[in-house]
Design a protein around this nucleic acid. Structure first.
Lengths: 252, 252
DNA sequence: ACAGCTCAAACTGCATGCAATTGAAGCGCC
DNA sequence: GGCGCTTCAATTGCATGCAGTTTGAGCTGT
């Protein structure tokens, strides 16, 4: 299982660091760590049996991937992408994954096709499990596709942006709604095997677009739950009659 | 000058680390540091007046961007992308930059147009200078465009992939050949201002495509200068009559 | 000369220690 | 009771030290 962990040694320096990175990445996209969750270097180091130095390095890498937010002299937190950033991430993802299927159409080997089918079967089986797992599997399907291009760079970018999208999904989409995704995955495989480039690019585009719009229905500020951002407009009109009392000065 | 250094605080943790990153990035794309150049932590730290810890962290970031190669227990080196990786990078870059101009077409403000024109003028003026500087300026034109989308994610990816392409250009293209690039940049600005989405996407596509093909003319193994890779086929037929004598066992 | 061996210098991997900054509890004052 | 100030534990920023690995220079035997 565990759908091909690394393969490309791009970045991910030593071992300990990359182990921590993988663990955190997974925890984040499975929502074990929610956006905004604190990630103190000490606790991380202790949890993984390494020193702060290593934990710190791992946080740096994850920050470079956009999964973690680093603020000077403050505890690192799981990133909380804005709605706009989420939309941008999906736009980029669509282009990248169109590129993936364009390169792959009609070029899949038999074992690759089998691997893809096996993965979708696994997705199917996971429908009974938790949402978190099926979200992760759905994301990993796309990463698996990217791997098959044999382009480390493409793998890296697709992975990164897919994880990011995963993160935003957990932020802005409540009911999850991955029901039809599995069928769409099967359709993509079929078109890929058939070698119909235009069709598969169209399928991938509409697949991702529908995932995005299903999730990011509207700017819907309520779901942003940044608390301070939500309160900001109220604070601006510094008048009485406030529903929520603001704690002293809300600076930054 | 210095075309907008950071803007997005994504990654780039503290200050010292990001200063080193920027310096190294620039040195790399200006070919002050050639691909394969060694980057010992000690020397770096000494040069920038910081400890190895910080230098190491910076190397980690650059490795995540693909500019530096980290090998366990070995001195870090400036990355040496293979021809195939170079081609892949350009493919990705084309898609990303098409996205940039699609978002920008007809939406540029007056000051933005002025900034772009000023940059191209600077490129023009730099034609007398060294190749390295004009390559850097040409790259920064594209990054400047990305900045104008106001999408930090897009900025990050375009920057990264553009730097990577810059690196490969310095590896595989000898005469440089940026003559016409400036005119192409001007044409893109014009189409952008006019708001002709299809035209500007086409322009950007052909611009990057021509840069890529001008540079990456053929797999041309000779230019890969990896020495060991070049020699590999000779080593395979472990026979006498070799032109170059191989030093003991050529392991990895 | 030349291939192989040995060993010391160079370098990385990692933990730990100290100073500086932050966040929040505690405390007095209005 | 609520507001502001002080103080202290928690936490980061960074340098340094030690152990293990790699590199390559020099030596030896052929």
């Amino acid at each position: 299982m565990a759908a091909r962990a690394d393969t490309s040694k791009t970045a991910e320096s030593s071992d300990k660091v990359s182990v921590i990175c993988r663990a955190l990445r997974r925890a984040i996209i499975e929502q074990a760590l929610e956006p905004g969750a604190k990630l103190p270097e000490d606790s991380l180091g202790e949890r993984f049996g390494v020193s702060r130095t290593i934990a710190r390095h791992a946080l740096g890498q994850l920050a470079a991937e956009g999964l973690v937010e680093l603020r000077r002299n403050r505890i690192a937190v799981v990133a909380t992408p804005s709605w706009q950033e989420a939309r941008d991430a999906f736009d980029i993802r669509i282009e990248l994954e169109r590129l993936v299927v364009r390169q792959l159409a009609g070029k899949l080997t038999k074992p690759q096709i089998a691997e893809l089918n096996a993965h979708v079967d696994a997705e199917d089986r996971a429908r009974d499990g938790t949402d978190a797992v099926s979200i992760r599997l759905a994301t990993e399907f796309h990463i698996l596709l990217a791997h098959m291009t044999n382009s480390p760079i493409l793998v890296r970018y697709v992975s990164e942006v897919a994880y990011r999208c995963c993160l935003t999904l957990s932020l802005y989409s409540r009911p999850h709604s991955s029901e039809c995704a599995i069928n769409e995955h099967r359709a993509i495989i079929a078109a890929l095997v058939k070698g119909d480039v235009d069709k598969v690019m169209g399928l991938m585009h509409s697949h991702l677009d529908s995932v995005a719009t299903r999730a990011l229905v509207a700017p819907s500020p309520q779901r942003g739950r940044d608390l301070l951002d939500i309160l900001a407009p109220y604070a601006d009109e510094a008048s009485g009659d406030r529903v929520v009392k603001l704690p002293k000065a809300v600076r930054r």
